[in-house]
Amino acid sequence: MSDTNTLSQTAALDFDRRNLDWYIDKIIQALVFIAGISAIIFIIGIFVFITIEGFGFLLEDFSFREFFLSQYWEPSDEDAPEYGILALIAGTASVTGLAMIVAIPFSLGAAIFIGEFATGKTREFLKVLVELLAAIPSVVWGFIGLSIMNPLIIQIFDVPVGLNVLNAGIILGLMAAPIMTSIAEDALKAVPDRYREAAEALGATRWQVIFKTVLPAAKNGLLGAVLLGMGRGFGETMAVLMATGHAVNIPGSVFDPVRALTATIAAELGETAVGSPHYQALFTIGIFLFIITFLINLTADLIVRGIRKG
């Protein structure tokens, strides 16, 4: 009787004492918390920085009408500089749009093949290959655009210049395809095998199983993959700078050269005086890009998250 009493008394003392394990746990919690929120702090920091840099322009020279609706980007005109990004938006949009037309069939096809048809070593090999493709630096893609695609387009389509929407769109599409493939394949893998078995037990062929069961079940993830690829295309700079021809122009056909928002910043920022209206206007483009890519990624993320819950 007295034995149990003392035992529970010592236990009670332990309950009321903080030991080393307790402190280590708290410290690690704090460290992980800091690491976790640092990403958010950096993002907010970047946003605040570019906003501050572009702020003077937003207050003084900025006109909503001119900025979004004028197709003249002439910031270095000494008498009447004009800051219209409509042509730049058209450039980015046309290149990204074409890139998606190239990338969607390739990446979905590849994802379906890797996820549903390939087995064993073929499958592992292809997955590694796709990851490898996703890691090719964008300047290398730009170089391919300049030195391979450019003469090829001139030769095939008999046009004077091969640096245009077509060139950049194909390059960007090939760049975005690996990451889209990878995410789309994850979405297909998330579809439980019992669905496939159940559909096959009904007598469905492989293609019927994929088309009627797997794709509908994975559609949110696939849409997310497309949007993330689009975000990638939107924000891509180097390859686009090298392959578009870099001419401010609203394209009338895929053979017209264009200039992208990102490429404009990359090409001009080094040549402007810090704090000048031109410098600040470039940062305003940065804010615009930041918001657009943020929205695309957020939408993609919400959609992908949607499937996990459903």
Binding site: V191, R194, Y195, A198, A199, A201, T213, A217
Partner: peptide, 13 residues
């Protein structure tokens, strides 16, 4: 051949 599995598999339709 119709099959009914031990745990129900409602297809995502």
């Amino acid at each position: 051949i119709g099959v009914v599995f031990p745990l129900p598999v409602g297809l995502p339709l």
